[in-house]
Nucleic acid binder design. Structure first.
Lengths: 147, 147
DNA sequence: ATAAATCCTACCAAATAAGTAGGAATAGTA
DNA sequence: TACTATTCCTACTTATTTGGTAGGATTTAT
C-alpha cells in the first residue's frame, strides 16, 4: 500500500498544477484548506518534493509552490519512488532500490524472482506513463462527461 | 513491498509441496534448517497458514505440515492477501480490504482512483494465476535448462 | 516412558509512519 | 520602516507495524 506521504503528494501536485495553470503559485495553507491534509505535515511533504526536484518555491508574501516542469512530465512512478520507496514487491527485483536476495542461493534459478520481475514490469507499464496531467484530465473529463 | 511473513510463507509452501510430493510431511525445523527462516518465527507463520486454510498439520513424532490442496491450487494472490494485506495500492480500490477514500468527495470522479484500479487489475492478472506449483516448475526448469 | 513434533499465550525491541512545535529567514506591501 | 504572509529548518512526539523471542502445554509414534 502507498503511504500517506505519497497520496498527499499526488493530491498536492494536482492542486499545484491547477494553480500554476492560472498563473499563480500554491501556498501550503491554500492546499491544506481544500484537501484536509494537515498543514504542518503537508509542509514537510512539499519540502521533500522540492528536494527531489518536483517543485520550486518562492518565499515571502504571495509566494508558494510551482511545478518545476510541465504536469505531463511528472510521472507517478518517479513520485512513488521518492515518497514511498520501491515499485517492486521484493528488493531483489527493484530497479532503483536493488538489494541482493538473502534467502536464495541464486537469483537466476529462483522461481519467485521471475514472477516478481513480471509484476514489477506490469506495474511500471502503468505508473511510468501516467502523469499528473493525465490525472487532471481524467478528473475534468469525468466531471463533464459530455465535453 | 512484501513483508517477510509473505516471503517466508512462499518459501515454506514450496518446501512443503516438495516434501509432500515425496509422501511425507514437512516439520518446522526441517524447513527452518534449509531456508534460514528463524524457527520460532516460522512456527507462527505456519500457524497463520493453517488458520487460513492453506495447510493441515499432524502433531507428534513424525508429524509436520501438508498442503490442504494441490500446489497448483495455491495462488500467490490469496497468500499475499492473508500474509501481507491488500494487493491494491490504495484502500478505495481494494477488492478484499475496501475502505472508502477519506480525501475525495466522489470516487467516480477521482482521477487517481481509476489509475489505481488499472494497477490492481494488472497485478492481479499475474498474482491470481501464479501458483506454488508454477514456482516449483520454474525452479526445476531453470536448474535443468535442457530438460 | 520418551522423544519429536505442533499448539498456544504472551511478551519485546526496532523500525517506520504520521504528525506536531517553534521559530528563523525572506519577500512583498503599505 | 513596520507588518504580514509565506517558506525553511530542526527537533520532538506518538502510534502502529514488523520481526521476532520465551516458555511451556499438548499430542503422537515408537
Amino acid at each position: 500500500m502507498l503511504n500517506k506521504r505519497s497520496r498527499y503528494a499526488i493530491k498536492a501536485l494536482i492542486f499545484i498544477a491547477r494553480a500554476n495553470a492560472l498563473q499563480h503559485p500554491a501556498s501550503v495553507s491554500s492546499i491544506a484548506d481544500t484537501t484536509t491534509i494537515p498543514n504542518k505535515f503537508l509542509e514537510s511533504i512539499l519540502h521533500d518534493l522540492k528536494v527531489a526536484g518536483f517543485v520550486l518555491s518562492r518565499k515571502g508574501s504571495g509566494g508558494g509552490y510551482y511545478l518545476s516542469r510541465t504536469a505531463d512530465q511528472v510521472f507517478l512512478a518517479d513520485l512513488i519512488r521518492v515518497m514511498n520507496g520501491p515499485i517492486a514487491m521484493v528488493p531483489c527485483v527493484s530497479l532503483n532500490y536493488y538489494e541482493r536476495c538473502e534467502y536464495c542461493a541464486d537469483e537466476r534459478t529462483c522461481g519467485i524472482h521471475a514472477v516478481m520481475e513480471e509484476l514489477r514490469d506490469a506495474s511500471l507499464a502503468i505508473l511510468a506513463k501516467t502523469s499528473i496531467a493525465d490525472l487532471i484530465r481524467r478528473e475534468d473529463w469525468m466531471k463533464e462527461p459530455e465535453a
